[in-house]
């Protein structure tokens, strides 16, 4: 079974470009209905399928995603 992972998104720095969403192999991410202080919808986790592969983080142009994975 795949390892479990988690992501922490700095929503204030997220610009809602959605590049991470299409990069996630497990459809963990989606765009928020809320906006941040700059007016951007931001990336949010919508399920617990994250495996900590970090694909979202490495394509994030704004380096707002931190990734964790169980040992």
């Amino acid at each position: 079974m795949a390892k479990r992972g988690d992501v922490v998104i700095d929503i204030e720095k997220c610009k809602g470009c959605e590049v991470c969403i299409s990069a996630c192999p497990h459809e963990v991410l989606s765009l928020s209905s809320e906006v941040n202080s700059k007016g951007y919808h931001y990336a949010v986790k919508v399920n617990s399928g994250c495996t900590g592969c970090a694909n979202c983080a490495i394509v994030c142009p704004d380096a707002v995603i931190t990734v964790y994975r169980e040992k």
Binding site: K13, K15, Y40, P61, A63, I65, R69
Partner: peptide
């Protein structure tokens, strides 16, 4: 459990580039 975080070789400034 950390596997990926922003490198310290970048500052914490918000990039002025357009989304994406």
């Amino acid at each position: 459990n950390l596997v990926y975080k922003k490198t310290d070789a970048m500052t914490d400034r918000v990039l002025h580039y357009c989304p994406g």
